[in-house]
Amino acid sequence: MASDRFTLDPGARALLHDLGISLARVLRRAQLPAGVFAHGQVSMTVEEYYRFWDALDAEAADPDLAARIGRALSVEAFNPPIFAALCSANLRTAAERIAAFKPLIGPLNLRVTFDRTGLTIAVNWPEGPPPPPLFVSAELAFWVALARIGTRREVHPTRVAMRRAPQPSAETTSYFGTQIREGKTDAVTFSAEDASLPFLTEDESMWDFFAPELRRRLSDLEASATTADRVRAALHERLPAGESSINAIAAQLMLSSRTLQRQLRAEDTSYQAVLSDTREKLARRYLADRSLPTSQVAYLLAYDDTNSFYRAFRRWTGLTPEGARNGGHLTPA
C-alpha cells in the first residue's frame, strides 16, 4: 500500500547538477520552496511531484532528457530501497525486491512478471491526472541504468512501451537500444538471459542489513492504511490483468472474502462500492488519454465487454465515454 506522497532523495541535487540543470530554476518553475532540500529527504504530494517533473522538462527543453538521466544515474541518486536492491543476485531479483518496497518511495506500484519471453516491469500510477511523460520515460530509463550498474554491461531491453510514447529520436533510441512504442501500459521488458545476468554488486550481507528496516517501514505504512485503501491499491494492480472479483483481491490481501467484507463494513463501505469508485476514477484518467480507445479502457478496467463499461460510465456520469471526452468532463471524480 503506497502513501499519498512521493519522496525525493537529496541525491536529486547532484543528478541535476551533473545534467547541467539549475535546481533553483526548476523549483521556481514548479512553485516549490527554494529551500525544499534544506532538511534532507523531501516529501511531496502527487500534484507537487508532477509539477516538479513538468518544470524539469520545461527547464531542460530537451526531448532526450530521459536518456540523459539514465546515463547520469549513479548510486548516490538512489533511495535506500533501490540502493539495497543493487545487493541482489540479478535484475530479476532486484525488480521483485524494488516492487515490494516501491510504496516507500511513492504512490505507485510495479507489476513484475518473468517467463520464457523475459522480465517485464510495468508501472501502475496513482489515481488522478496522468503522470508527466518525462517522469514515465525516466522511470523506464532507470531500469536500464540499474541493469547496467549492477552487471557492468551495456544491457538493452527488448521492448519499451508507453501509453503516451514520445516522438522517436536517435538519442533516446540509442540509449534504450529500441524505439519507445505505444502500449497498453508503461513497461520495459528485458530478455530472460539479461534479467539473469549476475550483479557484480551482489552483497547478501548488505541486503540482510537493509531488509529488516525496509520491512519495518513498509509494515508501518500498511498499518496506517484503511482496508478500503488496501483494496484500491490491489485493484490498481489486478484490474489490468482482468481480475475484479472479491475472491481475487481478498487472496492478494491474504484475507478471506468474508473477513474483507466485514472490515469494509466497519469502514461504512463495501467491496462493490470501492470497486465502482476505483473504476470510475481510473476510467476518467484513462479517457483523458485520447490515444486509448474506449474498448481498451474497458479492458484495463476488467469489464467483460465494452457495453458493460458504457452502462457503468453512464451510471456514474450520465454521459457516454465519448461524450465525456468531447465535453471535457474528465476531471477526477
Score class of each variant (00 low, 15 high):
residue 3 S to M: 13
residue 6 F to L: 12
residue 9 D to M: 08
residue 11 G to E: 07
residue 13 R to Y: 03
residue 15 L to N: 03
residue 17 H to G: 13
residue 22 S to M: 07
residue 25 R to S: 13
residue 25 R to T: 13
residue 26 V to G: 07
residue 29 R to D: 10
residue 30 A to R: 03
residue 31 Q to C: 05
residue 33 P to V: 04
residue 33 P to R: 04
residue 35 G to Q: 07
residue 36 V to P: 04
residue 38 A to T: 13
residue 39 H to E: 15
residue 40 G to Q: 01
residue 40 G to I: 02
residue 41 Q to H: 03
residue 44 M to E: 08
residue 46 V to Y: 00
residue 47 E to A: 15
residue 51 R to V: 03
residue 51 R to A: 11
residue 53 W to F: 12
residue 54 D to G: 00
residue 55 A to S: 13
residue 59 E to D: 10
residue 62 D to G: 11
residue 67 A to T: 00
residue 69 I to N: 08
residue 70 G to F: 01
residue 70 G to A: 02
residue 73 L to P: 02
residue 82 I to Q: 07
residue 87 C to M: 06
residue 88 S to R: 07
residue 89 A to S: 15
residue 92 R to V: 02
residue 95 A to T: 09
residue 104 L to H: 09
residue 105 I to E: 07
residue 110 L to N: 03
residue 110 L to E: 04
residue 112 V to Q: 05
residue 114 F to P: 02
residue 120 T to E: 15
residue 121 I to Y: 02
residue 126 P to T: 10
residue 127 E to Q: 13
residue 129 P to Y: 08
residue 130 P to W: 06
residue 131 P to N: 03
residue 147 A to F: 04
residue 147 A to C: 06
residue 151 T to S: 14
residue 154 E to P: 00
residue 154 E to N: 15
residue 155 V to T: 12
residue 157 P to I: 12
residue 159 R to N: 09
residue 163 R to F: 07
residue 169 S to T: 15
residue 171 E to K: 09
residue 174 S to K: 06
residue 174 S to Q: 12
residue 176 F to C: 04
residue 177 G to Y: 12
residue 187 A to H: 10
residue 190 F to L: 05
residue 190 F to W: 09
residue 190 F to D: 07
residue 192 A to N: 06
residue 192 A to F: 08
residue 195 A to H: 01
residue 200 L to K: 11
residue 203 D to N: 14
residue 208 D to V: 00
residue 216 R to W: 06
residue 221 L to H: 05
residue 223 A to E: 15
residue 224 S to T: 09
residue 225 A to F: 00
residue 226 T to H: 05
residue 227 T to C: 10
residue 229 D to S: 11
residue 231 V to D: 13
residue 235 L to H: 04
residue 241 A to D: 14
residue 242 G to C: 08
residue 242 G to R: 06
residue 245 S to T: 12
residue 248 A to H: 08
residue 249 I to T: 08
residue 249 I to D: 00
residue 255 L to C: 02
residue 259 T to Q: 14
residue 260 L to V: 07
residue 261 Q to W: 01
residue 262 R to G: 11
residue 268 D to F: 10
residue 268 D to L: 06
residue 269 T to D: 00
residue 274 V to L: 04
residue 275 L to A: 05
residue 276 S to W: 02
residue 279 R to Y: 01
residue 286 Y to K: 06
residue 288 A to W: 10
residue 288 A to D: 11
residue 290 R to S: 13
residue 290 R to A: 13
residue 292 L to Y: 07
residue 295 S to D: 15
residue 297 V to K: 08
residue 297 V to F: 11
residue 301 L to Y: 13
residue 302 A to W: 04
residue 303 Y to N: 02
residue 303 Y to M: 02
residue 305 D to C: 10
residue 310 Y to F: 15
residue 310 Y to S: 05
residue 311 R to Y: 14
residue 313 F to D: 04
residue 316 W to P: 01
residue 317 T to A: 14
residue 321 P to Q: 11
residue 322 E to G: 06
residue 323 G to P: 04
residue 324 A to I: 05
residue 324 A to F: 05
residue 326 N to Q: 14
residue 327 G to K: 08
residue 328 G to C: 04
residue 329 H to P: 01
